[in-house]
Amino acid sequence: MNAAEPVMPRPAATVLLLRDGPDGRLQVFLQRRVKGMAFAGGMTVFPGGGVDASDRAVAWEGPEPAWWAERLGCTADEAAGFVLAAVRETFEECGVLLADGASVDAGVLARARDDVAQRRRVFGDVLTGLGLRVRADLLHPWARWITPIVQPRRYDTAFFTAIVPPGQEADAQTTEAVEATWWTPAAALTAFRDGEIGLMRPTRTILTDIAAFPDAASLHAAAPTGAISSILPMVVEGLPDVLLPGDEGYDLHVASGHAPAGGHR
């Protein structure tokens, strides 16, 4: 690969895990990643991760891959990867399983989660063994962001919303985060402005967008019903933050590496 060519983004999925707090207000689950991680080390993020090749082989209940493809602007195979990675990563990182089926003992479920996280067994095999089936209808598509072309590690990430199913609790039992807890969007944004946590631009933008929703149900119901346009931020030398589509000076040709950025420096 030519040194000037951008790294191809790896497909990934992220979930805005939602609930209503004790006061009835919307809360979202956020994790502060381990500082030494290669991507977003030390940042506070929504749970998620890269798509595994095995993800696409898992069957589910709910809208078919073609439905998701239409909304995420990708192929059905890519859409299946996004959806199933979202479910798997939520299970691995938070202990919340967006699935339906027979009741499973908590200890058995914990061991299954560890097997998936440690890659001892693939997610589909674990679900089959437990008599469970993914509930893709518990997810709603929200956004799609692509890491800027200048970054050495890039992701093409589909963002989804999901309300924590009754009887389940999100936890912080993951090796990828030093802490995880529930935040109101406004409180997370305030903590960022006060320098208490770090937020990447996609996380910050989404928290800003959802802050006006009063509760989990209203946010989950507000998911886009049409095709979602990918957001590719533009890095400009000398600016403290990236530019997004609609910002003054944003140029998609420059952001995608198809034109020189000299006029924007």
Rank of each mutant, 00 (worst) to 15 (best):
A40V: 13
D52T: 11
I206Y: 00
G262S: 14
D215A: 11
K35N: 12
G129K: 05
G226V: 09
D105Q: 11
L127H: 01
G167E: 02
G95R: 03
V96W: 00
I206E: 00
G81K: 01
R25Q: 15
I163R: 09
S218W: 10
A106Y: 10
D171E: 13
D125T: 12
F160L: 09
T128V: 15
A76I: 03
R25I: 08
V150P: 02
T147N: 03
A117C: 08
V134Q: 01
Q168I: 07
M234S: 00
G195A: 04
W67T: 11
W67Q: 10
A102T: 14
E176D: 14
R25F: 06
R133A: 03
T14F: 05
E70P: 08
P47Q: 08
G131V: 07
F159K: 00
E89C: 05
L130S: 07
A216P: 13
A66F: 11
G257A: 01
D100F: 03
D209E: 15
T203M: 10
M43I: 09
Q27H: 14
D20C: 12
T14E: 12
L84E: 07
L130T: 04
H264D: 01
G81V: 06
A110W: 08
S229V: 13
T14P: 01
V96I: 08
V104F: 07
F91A: 03
P260D: 07
L17W: 05
D209H: 10
L72M: 10
P233M: 00
L130N: 02
K35F: 10
G42T: 10
T174A: 04
E89N: 12
S54E: 14
E169G: 03
T44E: 03
P141S: 04
V58Q: 03
